[in-house]
Amino acid sequence: MIYAIASGKGGTGKTTLAASLITLWDGPVTAVDLDVEEPNLHLFLNPQELSSQKAFVEVPEVDEAKCTLCRACSELCQFKAISVMGDLLLTFPEMCHGCGGCFAVCPEDALFPSKRELGEVISGKVGDIDFIMGCLRIGEAMSPPLMTQVKKILNQNTGGDVIIDAPPGVSCPAISAVIDSDCIVLVTEPTPFGFHDFKLAWEAFAPLGKPMGAVINRAGIGDDSVQLFCRKNGIPIWAEIPYDRAIAEAYSRGEVVVQTVKSLRETFARLQQRMKDAANAANQETGRAMSTEVHHA
């Protein structure tokens, strides 16, 4: 099963939660950091035996001798990555989304593939746990293509569960991180900002039809709007982690909080069970739906 730890608002505790869950997890698990713009999970898990692989997106380059300036490519390109200026066809690799359309429509075979570096995919080991992260090249604007490449490596990993540390927000990078998961954990804090972004995240992820539960971090600060909203909308609250200076301090020292603040162990064990139960229940339901379909057919 793939579990995504997500949130609308940043800084609510996704990485803290992911690191603790991974450390305590019963059974084989792979730790994945898909917050490729600002990956942080490695700072807490300290993976060893690191190996890094550069990731690229394929962009076009022009063979001027073959190009007839017919503009088939520039008229197709939706991202202003290729255009005719005077008697030259110019490419703007940093604008390219790598859709391959220009190669497909060029009647003269005048474009050849070049590449733009997206960043790195880094793998390693935390004890016997596999660790994978993406790290976006500074200056690169597009994170989803790098996330796709991290996920490709992930697909080669068979067996065991996967825990994904997702990026904040609710736009394309966040969706891209949770879309292939079996279960989403939404981490929030009970403040007006936390609540507002929690609602956005719930609206964004609910249409994906995956089991979803909330974790309220720093419970006790702010107000109770998150709890009330969850109750009203039937969102299960899988854990409440009280505000505690000791947790914040452990985090600030780069520690996995569940190892320092032992009283949290029970909360995390319960959270793990709830995540597994929700994912399994949804899985069985899909299985049942499929067997009914087959039966009808």
């Binding site: 940043g10 800084g11 713009e37 600002e38 976006l136 500074i138 200056g139 690169e140 604007a141 597009m142 994170s143 990026p167 904040p168 927000g169 990078p173």
Partner: peptide
């Protein structure tokens, strides 16, 4: 601004 270092921050 937005968090991260990607598209909205660069813009």
């Amino acid at each position: 601004g937005a968090p991260g270092i990607g598209c909205p921050v660069i813009s």
